[in-house]
Simulated assay, not measured.
Amino acid sequence: MHQILVYADSLSWGIIPDTRERFDFNQRWPGVMELELSESDKPVRVIEDCLNGRRTVWDDPFKPGRNGLIGLEQRIEINSPLSLVVVFLGTNDFQSMHHRNAWESAQGVGAIITAIRRARIEPVMPIPEILIVAPPKIQKAKGAIAPKFEGAELKAVGLNEAIRRVADDENCHFFDAGTVTKTSRIDGVHLDKDQHRVLGKAIAEFVRSILPEC
C-alpha cells in the first residue's frame, strides 16, 4: 500500500466556505483521491497534514505555527515510508498583511521542496516523489474572509506559472488545480463541495501515473 502525505492549507483541510465548519473526509479532495485510487489497482493511505492559514515560509502575525517550513522535515520522518508528498500551498501568502508577489510565493514552494528532500529518513526507506499543486486563481474574496484576503487576487497574478517553473527546476511533478476548477462561488478563495470532488478525481488520475514509479 502506498502512503501519500498531503501537506497543505485550508483548501485541502476542507473548510466549508464562509463558515468554520469542515467537509467530511469523503467530501474533501484528499479523501476523494484516496477513494478513487483505492477502488482501482492503486490502494493508498492518504495522510492529511493540512492547516488553516498555512503559508509557504512566512509567519502569521496573529496565529502561531503557520510557517510551512517549521517542523516539515520531522513530519516527513514521522510519516515515512512515503511514496509521495503532495504540496498544495501558496494561497495564504497573499493575505492582506503580506506584501508578496507570485515569484516570492513560488520561491517559498521551492524552500518547501528543499526541506522535504533534506528530511532524515531511515536508509531502507524510499525518498518520496513530490507533486506540487498550484492553487486555482484567487478571486475577489467575499464574506467573512474578505478583509483577510483584500487585494489577494491582484498580488497572486501569475502564481500558477511561477510555481510551475519552480517545480520544473526542482524536477518535481506538477498539477495546476486551476485547469479543472475555479475557487469557491461563495467566498472566492476556498473550494465548494463539488469543486473538491472534481479536483480529487483529477489529482487521483494524475497520481495514478506517478505511483508505479515510486
Results as ranks from 00 to 15, higher is better:
1 M>L: 10
7 Y>N: 03
8 A>C: 07
8 A>W: 02
11 L>E: 08
13 W>T: 13
14 G>M: 08
19 T>L: 06
19 T>H: 08
26 N>C: 04
30 P>D: 03
31 G>N: 03
35 L>H: 08
35 L>R: 08
38 S>Q: 06
38 S>V: 03
38 S>T: 15
39 E>M: 09
40 S>F: 07
40 S>M: 13
41 D>Y: 02
41 D>C: 06
43 P>S: 08
52 N>L: 15
53 G>A: 10
54 R>M: 13
58 W>F: 12
61 P>I: 07
61 P>D: 06
67 N>T: 13
68 G>E: 04
68 G>C: 07
68 G>Q: 01
69 L>Y: 02
70 I>P: 00
72 L>T: 11
72 L>H: 02
74 Q>F: 04
78 I>N: 02
78 I>K: 03
79 N>T: 02
79 N>Q: 03
81 P>E: 05
81 P>N: 04
83 S>R: 00
83 S>T: 00
84 L>H: 04
84 L>Q: 02
87 V>A: 10
91 T>K: 00
93 D>A: 02
95 Q>K: 14
96 S>D: 05
97 M>N: 09
99 H>V: 10
101 N>E: 02
103 W>P: 00
105 S>L: 10
112 I>G: 01
114 T>S: 14
115 A>V: 09
116 I>M: 07
117 R>A: 04
122 E>V: 04
125 M>W: 14
127 I>D: 00
128 P>R: 00
128 P>F: 01
129 E>R: 06
130 I>V: 12
131 L>I: 09
131 L>R: 01
132 I>S: 04
133 V>Q: 01
137 K>T: 13
138 I>W: 00
141 A>P: 07
143 G>D: 06
143 G>N: 05
144 A>D: 09
146 A>K: 05
147 P>W: 03
148 K>P: 00
149 F>Y: 15
151 G>C: 11
153 E>Y: 08
153 E>Q: 12
156 A>K: 07
156 A>W: 03
157 V>R: 04
157 V>A: 10
160 N>R: 14
161 E>S: 09
163 I>C: 02
164 R>H: 09
165 R>W: 07
166 V>P: 11
166 V>M: 00
166 V>S: 10
166 V>I: 15
173 H>N: 11
175 F>N: 14
178 G>C: 14
178 G>M: 10
182 K>E: 15
185 R>E: 12
185 R>H: 09
188 G>M: 11
189 V>D: 14
189 V>C: 13
189 V>R: 04
190 H>T: 03
191 L>W: 03
193 K>T: 09
194 D>Q: 14
194 D>V: 09
200 G>T: 08
201 K>N: 05
202 A>E: 15
209 S>P: 07
210 I>D: 03
213 E>M: 06
213 E>T: 14
213 E>V: 15
